[in-house]
Every structure is written in C-alpha cells, then in structure tokens.
Design a protein around this nucleic acid. Structure first.
Lengths: 239, 239
DNA sequence: TGGTAGTAAATGTCAGACATTTAGACAAGC
DNA sequence: GCTTGTCTAAATGTCTGACATTTACTACCA
C-alpha cells in the first residue's frame, strides 16, 4: 500500500499520527508489510522529518509498528496492538472501516467483563457516581425517540457505561472506559433503531441503574448482561 | 525532589526512561510536583537533550507526566497512569517501593476478573494452551519445595496465569497478562512461604488446570477465585 | 487597583550532519 | 558448491545549535 490514497495536510504531528493510525486500523496495510519510509512520508505530507518521527513514535508505542535501524518500519499484527491504550481508542472512534473481528473482540470482552464491573459498582458507588449514572440515563431517555439525535444518544450511552466503570472505584477497571466509545460508536450505524428497540434498551439500562442504586450486586450483574445480550447475539458472541 | 539521589549512567534512552519511571512509581515525586527540566536531567546524567526528550516522551505517553511549553513538566496523579501499558508493567516489575495502594488495586482487579477469564479459558482453550498451562504447573511443582528457587517459582506462577489469559482467546483479555508479573512479583517477598502454603496453592492451581482441561466453565471460575482468595484476604480486599 | 508590555525560562520545532544497523551484491578461498 | 568477508546503499537513530512558541512573572503606567 502506498501513500497516494491518503489525504494531505492535517496539521500537527498528532494529526498526522491519527491519520496514519486510522489508515492502519482500516487495514490499508497487512501485518508484516513494510511501512513507508520517513522521508517519503515527509515529502508526501510536506512536513519535517521531526514531525514524521514524532508521529511514528506514537504509532510504535501503541504497538502498531516496529522500527529497526537499517531495515525500516514494519506493520505488526493485530494481536500485538495495544487495544487498551487511550490513543488507540481515540483513533478507533468514528472509524467506518474498523475490522469486524476487532469489534467482535471488544464486544466479547465487554460482554464478559461488564457484569463483573456492574457488580463492583453496586458495592462501591457513591453519590457522585449515581448522579453521573442518572444524568446519563436521563440523556438517553431524552434522545431516544428522535432519529436525528442518534449520535447524541450514543454519547449518553457511552457516558452511562463509563460511569459504571468509574463507579467500580478500581484503578484498573477505570482505565477500560476508553474502550467504550469506539465499541458503541462502531455499532451505531449497524443496528435497526426501531422505536421498540430503544424502549427495550432503555428499560434494561434502567435495571442496571436501579440495581446499583440499591446496592444489589447480583441484580446489577444480571442486568448488565441483559443490556449487552441482544447485540452479543447479533454479533454471534453468544446464542 | 531533586535528581541527586538517583544513580547515574544507565545506558540508552530506554534505560533512562526506566530509571526515571521507577523513581516516579516509587513516589519520589508527588502528583502536581514539578519534574526536573530537560537540561538539568541532561547535565546530571551526561546525555544529550535528545535522549532526555526521548525518555520523557515515553513517560508522557504512559500517563506519568504532562508537559506544556513554557510551564515545564508536571507529575500526574496515580489515577491518570496507564496501568495497562506494557511499559508500565516492565517498569513496575521488581520494584520494591511500589505503592501498596497500587498493589491492592491490581490485585482487586485480578480477584474480580480472573474467575471470568478462567471461565472463558475453559470454553476456548486449545491443545497449545493446555500444554502451556501444564508446563507452567509442572514448573511450579518442581520449584515449590526449594526456598532457593523462589524467583523461579514466581516465574512459573506468572506463566500459569498468563497462559490462562491467553487461553481466553480474546484480544483484549490477552493484553492484560502484562499486569501479572508486577502483581505476582510484588508479593513474593511479603508472604510466608511455609511449605503447607505452597502445597495449598499448588492444589488450587491444579483445580483450575483440571477444570479448564475438561471445559467446565463454572468449576474453572470457582477454582480461579479460590487461587486468589487467600492473598485477597491478606490484602483486605475480601473478608 | 488593574491592565499591559516586556522579559526570562521552559518545552517544541527545525535543519543538517553524522552514526549505526541491516540487507544485498560480489568476489575470494576452501 | 558453499562459506566467508567486504563493500555499498539505504534506512532508522543520534547529536548539535539555532530558533519558535508558550507560559509565568515583573514592572510600569493609566
């Protein structure tokens, strides 16, 4: 794969990194392929070698590339990508061409993990956590009926699940909230969006909220699984 | 905190990054503190500004520091650290002064997550996974009785749990195997190491292995929790 | 008292040269 | 034929000095 198909002129090094990363995440290069060399990237985008090295350093630290003096830059395989790096989540959100295998893997993780997280949240949530959960839920309610507010609804959806992770009050679980945005955004355009679907989804989210509020660990765990079950079935993760 | 207490001359930029990171992880600076400026670090360690910037870039991408032009470099608080970055795990392993709060957080995460992971492993493990698990378990057996092989035993311990994460065959869970080494290593020197403790621990690990081999999800989940329970009690995570 | 220009200090960027590592070509010698 | 060594080209890594940009602080003046 060459550089010709990529758009030009995206600002600073962070923008260049984002552009290249998204091309990688969309599968423009295969694992093991040689990535374009620094100087070529620099001339194509008309930026200094510093900017290019800066951008490539980010991609390398995210596990997307390996660079060795003399050989050049190589694309790593998906299993080496640092999916839990916040930068990766930022690059993945809104990407249309994201590999379906990746979407399935992240959702399968959530399907197994979120019941546990919701259970911890039921034990550890304080007043602030519950306020965040309620605000997110109300936002979901307000935007559920309007087909023009799809993106806004998805944002509240992200906020709700992130609030659940935050409410676990565990430093490690809290870091994984980053995964939610790309996971939820990737599915916005692929589901039906019928009204009854929204109502059903809202009811399931309400069950999670209520279980956390009254500190019912098992109910929260069960309800969190119910929230994810329908999509998990659609993705073939569970039957 | 100043630089004077740190040893000198550790090789390349990766070594410098490791040295500074471990000083940060050991709590030499408080959150919000000003970190030494580039030029001072350079003169103290007698390296070029490039090397320093290189190292600081790594610490920044791990969430340990924020750098802003004009102001300088500031230390971020623990909740912002990217605990799931593999570099962090590398820096944490073998560190004596690691913050006990961090050790507890990671162990609490494992205590909630590993039952789920073991359950997934029971469903998804293939022949290679089981071979890895058995090799690790045999290594643990061989090194259990010898007090001189403590470190070796810990390595097999890490291998066993990592093999469990690998056996889940989920891209996200697999990334978290990195957390195991620092978590296990941090506790090597703090437990009793009586012979019956080892025997008990071995038996519990065997239950996990056997449950995964016969594909028994619930048993694997239960056994994984039993493996971690004793230490979880010692750390005050569960009663 | 408050705003404003100026100054110092820190990180960010650039350009050019050089160092190091790697892969490949080619020839010499067993 | 096979190995070994050497040379060369090409790629990333590093160094250096200068300059740009951002920020905090100070001093001054209305």
């Amino acid at each position: 794969m060459t550089l010709e198909t990529l758009p030009r002129h995206q600002g600073d090094a962070a923008g260049l990194a984002r552009l290249l990363a998204r091309a990688l995440l969309a599968g423009h290069w295969q694992p093991g392929d040689a990535f374009p060399k620094e100087l070529d990237i620099g001339t194509h985008f008309d930026v200094s070698r510093n900017q290019v090295r800066n951008a490539l350093t980010r991609l390398t630290s995210a596990g997307l590339l390996t660079r060795t003096a003399g050989r050049g830059t190589q694309v790593r395989e998906m299993s080496d990508w640092h999916l839990l790096d916040p930068l990766m989540s930022e690059w993945m959100t809104g990407l249309i061409n994201l590999d379906p295998q990746l979407i399935r893997a992240i959702y399968a993780f959530r399907f197994s993990a979120e019941p546990v997280v919701a259970g911890l949240a039921a034990k550890a949530a304080d007043a602030d956590d519950i306020a965040r959960l309620e605000a997110a839920f109300e936002g979901m309610q307000k935007t559920a009926r309007s087909p023009t507010a799809r993106d806004q609804h998805a944002e509240y959806d992200v906020m709700f699940h992130d609030a659940t992770y935050q409410a676990s009050h565990n430093l490690v679980w809290r870091q994984m909230g980053h995964l939610l945005r790309p996971s939820i955004m990737a599915l916005v355009h692929s589901s039906q969006h019928r009204t009854d679907t929204f109502d059903d989804s809202l009811a399931r989210h309400r069950h999670v909220l209520e279980a956390i509020v009254r500190g019912d660990v098992d109910a929260a765990s069960f309800a969190a699984r119910e929230v994810l079950r329908r999509t998990a079935i659609d993705l073939g993760i569970v039957n």
